[in-house]
Amino acid sequence: MSDVMIEAQGLTKRYDGVLAIDRVSMEVRRGEVLGFLGPNGAGKSTTMKILTCFTSPSEGSAKVNGCDITTDSIGVRRSIGYLPESTALYQDMLVLEYLEYAAEIRGLAGADVRKRVKVVVDETGLGDVIGKQIRALSKGYRQRVGLAQALIHEPPILILDEPMSGLDPNQAVEIRDLIKDIGRQRTVILSTHNLTEVQIACNRVLIISKGRIVADDTPEGLRDRAGKSRCVVNVLGKDSALALACEQTFAALSGIERVRKLEDAGDGELSFEIIPKTDEDLRPLLFKTAVDKGYTLVGLRREGQNLEQVFRELTTGSDKPSTDARDPRDTRDKAAA
């Protein structure tokens, strides 16, 4: 058996003439937890629906666990556990009933059903709600039932569409840890637009934008790609003479690539963005310089470029260099929006 669990080539899907995904190709190996990252409507769900044989591609082909999605769709579906974005479960069933049903339809019978149900209930922590109706469960528990359902037949591959969306932060962390656990023994593809989740849970990231894959890397690799960390210095003062002096002083220091004055926020502080030549921490040097020159230093921080910035650059199609950064405040605003 080869180590490539999922292999897609040139997957294209058109809905009524609209291109949902455009020549998506990828390879996922055994044991990888692949984060599928992209803004809403980028084509994450469409790709997943194709890989799970819910829908067919307009063009292209894919193999899942060695089975072709068009000629052996039953084989594909046997190899996967799938949690759709909606996590739609039969509301009127009890958790136990539902899991037994999922097990039976997956071809388990008799004692095997009970055994597997017990295992997944333990694995996903559903013990307390096993006798409840699904409609009575919280979103977090429903998500667990969805995961339990996907795990019941011990599939080698799990495909999870936005498993952490709509959960409160605690639930999201629990589900994320659960997925991380599960991912130790299986190949997992999970889609999300939450970058923190990807950084923590995944060991590889695919970024998809407007139906195309725009990046394929490890979370660390993506961060490196974004460039070096930068320092932001805040100095008390308003007048432009001081601003100019500061800028020149900092620029004259060794190991500095570029200094830029950030827009005045009107709070009586001057802010500068300082980009180092290497990834070395400039803060001690900047601090000493400011003290020597008699600047009233009120802020000094070092920021790594995070995935968020990379993500936005890759998915909004801007090709400006990443160091041409925005004011940190405005970054935060956009992130919050």
């Binding site: 044989c53 819910f54 759709p84 739609a88 339809i105 071809g107």
Partner: peptide, 14 residues
């Protein structure tokens, strides 16, 4: 309407 069909049809059933 509810979307349960997605899980049903991605199970190995014809």
């Amino acid at each position: 309407r509810t979307g349960t069909i997605e899980i049903l049809l991605t199970m190995p059933v014809r």
